[in-house]
């Protein structure tokens, strides 16, 4: 028996919009810890890891660990039928091949049940150990999205370099090149507007902008994005989901031939 009630149902809607273009099918795992997902894109270049902790739900019942294979496009279609203020409850049962999404209006005067078919998905879980990163950049998520969008109109790849001067985003394409530097900036009143750079060592890595631009679909989930970089590791682009958990995107770098 599974019953997860989320007052702020719009969070789930936003999560789906953030990942459905990167990953088409995935297993949602439900345990005492929370509602989670780990899935790679079809080319195994990028990975999304989602955690919505059980404490963040208004009601959380998960009698035993359950994995639900879901077509994310279909789930997104159903969640789009929930109003922006609706409370969403996810209901499932062991041994059934469906999941039900219940939408309740704030005034409780409209209740909708959407039943969706589940599917069998071979899960390929990657073990991702905790790592020390050479540089961690925290910046406004909207600023990062703007940079990725702007650079994506010039080139296909972005070189992200962190030095003590700041974080530099560079691209080159047929029409020319572009270079954007963001310096550390903590002197603002609103901490979410700050750019904070923690650097142990300078680092410079190249990534496909197509994926970065896909990750920025999570911008609506958090005002701040954290970018963790090490020369030996995929980049981690993390959006915290207020009081509930996170959505993390991992992206393998490109290397010079």
């Amino acid at each position: 028996m599974l019953e997860l009630r989320l007052i702020q149902g719009s969070l789930l809607k936003k999560v789906l919009e953030a990942i459905k273009d990167l990953v088409t099918e995935a297993n949602f795992d439900c345990s005492a810890t929370g509602f989670s997902l780990q899935a790679m894109d079809s080319s195994h270049v990028a990975l999304v890891a989602l955690l919505l902790r059980s404490e963040g739900f208004d009601h959380y019942r998960c009698d035993r660990n359950l994995s639900m294979g879901i077509n994310l496009n279909n789930m997104s279609k159903m969640l789009r039928c929930a109003g922006p203020e609706d409370i969403i409850t996810i209901k499932g049962d062991d041994g059934t091949d469906t999941v039900t999404f219940m939408f309740e209006s704030q005034k409780q005067d409209k209740i909708s049940d959407f039943e969706m078919k589940l599917m069998d998905i071979d899960s390929e879980h990657l073990g991702i150990p905790d790592a020390e990163y050479q540089a961690i950049v925290r910046m406004p998520s909207a600023e990062f999205a703007r940079i990725c969008k702007d650079l994506g109109s010039i080139g296909d790849t972005v070189v992200i370099s962190v030095t003590k001067e700041g974080v530099k985003f560079f691209t080159r394409g047929d029409v020319g090149s572009a270079n954007i530097v963001c310096r550390q900036n903590t002197s603002v009143d609103k901490p979410e507007d700050s750019t904070v750079i923690e650097m142990n060592e300078p680092v410079s890595l190249t990534f496909a902008l197509r994926y970065m631009n896909s990750f920025t679909k999570a911008t609506t989930l958090s005002e701040v994005v954290t970018i963790s970089l090490s020369s030996e590791l995929p980049v981690v682009v993390e959006y915290k989901i207020a009081e509930m958990g996170y959505i993390r995107f991992y992206l393998a770098p490109k290397i010079e031939d």
Binding site: M40, S43, H44, V45, A46, L47, E124, H125, L126, G127, I128, T157, T206, A208, E232, L233, P234, Y250, A252, P253, K254, I255, E256, D257
Partner: peptide
């Protein structure tokens, strides 16, 4: 020219 690495070059499958 650049080569796109895959995640399994860094992490192992559980």
């Amino acid at each position: 020219n650049e080569t796109q690495l895959r995640l399994d070059a860094f992490y192992t499958f559980n």
